[in-house]
Simulated assay, not measured.
Amino acid sequence: MKINASRSSSTRLDRSRHAAPQVFEQLREMILSLELAPGTVLSRADLATRYGLSQTPVRDALMKLGEEGLVDIFPQHATVVSQINVTSALQAHFLRRSIELEVVRTLTEQRDAALINRLRETIVGQAELLDLKNYEQFSLLDQAFHRQMYKAAGVPQLWDLVRRLSGHIDRLRRLHLPVEGKTMDVVRDHTKIVDAIEQGDVEAAQEALRNHLSGTLNQIDQIRTSHPNFLADD
């Protein structure tokens, strides 16, 4: 599979900003959403044409994607969207779980009513999308839910760190999201987390979080069966 350089839907760039970070951000989101599936060939020349740029910022963007393990770069040959590395996904999950267990502990001790209201509003937004199967917007609200918690706990930079390291597990979650009942499970999990925070129950909040974050990893075998060419173990 090869990316179509003639597409124009994602090529707009803010000319007041450096080009390479914008190309990186757009390609990264396309990879995480699986719009660019594992195995897609990314031609530097085609991307330069698509974005109306020289090849230098495109090369820089691809190198940064390579640093995150989202593309495999074969010098003088091709750049290919990488398979989903299960080992990397497991490590990213371990890191995120470790951090967020402390995040929910902090929030449960604070019991900030304004934060609780904001989190519930985000859950309502997700619930409204259940019947629409708008997985892209649902995923954005899922990220917003967790980002709000990191910010309220005073560790927003750790959210940025987790996001940088979560490319493989994010793609697993995106494959899992359309499975029947998964989006409802997410809404239910988020509600349990917020209920426990509001009640000041640290143990319940942490248990709800553990269950929430482990849902996709418990389905790896099924995801592998459905998408055998997308996953790699190392």
Rank of each mutant, 00 (worst) to 15 (best):
163 R>S: 10
159 W>L: 13
210 R>K: 15
205 A>I: 12
169 I>G: 06
212 H>I: 06
201 D>V: 06
73 I>V: 05
108 T>D: 05
137 Q>P: 05
29 E>Y: 00
173 R>L: 04
148 Q>V: 00
74 F>E: 06
55 Q>K: 02
2 K>Q: 14
9 S>N: 11
5 A>K: 08
146 H>T: 12
87 T>I: 09
21 P>N: 14
37 A>W: 04
205 A>E: 07
175 L>C: 01
64 K>D: 00
14 D>F: 03
23 V>A: 07
233 D>C: 00
201 D>E: 07
70 L>P: 01
74 F>D: 07
176 H>E: 03
116 I>T: 04
89 A>S: 05
5 A>W: 12
183 T>E: 14
108 T>P: 03
55 Q>A: 01
20 A>C: 05
77 H>T: 15
217 L>G: 12
210 R>V: 14
83 Q>A: 03
174 R>D: 03
221 D>R: 04
203 E>R: 14
48 A>Q: 02
7 R>F: 15
23 V>W: 02
208 A>M: 15
5 A>T: 15
126 Q>F: 02
33 S>P: 05
9 S>R: 15
104 V>S: 10
69 G>V: 11
97 R>Y: 12
135 Y>N: 11
202 V>P: 11
43 S>N: 07
143 Q>V: 02
163 R>I: 00
110 Q>D: 11
146 H>P: 03
73 I>D: 01
50 R>N: 08
107 L>R: 07
177 L>V: 04
128 E>G: 10
178 P>N: 03
147 R>C: 06
4 N>F: 06
113 A>K: 13
33 S>M: 02
185 D>I: 02
80 V>G: 01
211 N>M: 13
220 I>M: 10
161 L>C: 02
94 F>P: 04
25 E>C: 11
83 Q>R: 01
193 I>Q: 07
41 V>P: 07
98 S>R: 08
79 T>G: 03
134 N>V: 01
212 H>W: 08
26 Q>G: 00
72 D>A: 02
139 S>K: 12
133 K>L: 12
36 L>D: 14
60 D>H: 10
88 S>R: 09
28 R>S: 07
106 T>E: 15
80 V>F: 12
209 L>V: 14
121 E>V: 14
176 H>V: 11
58 V>P: 12
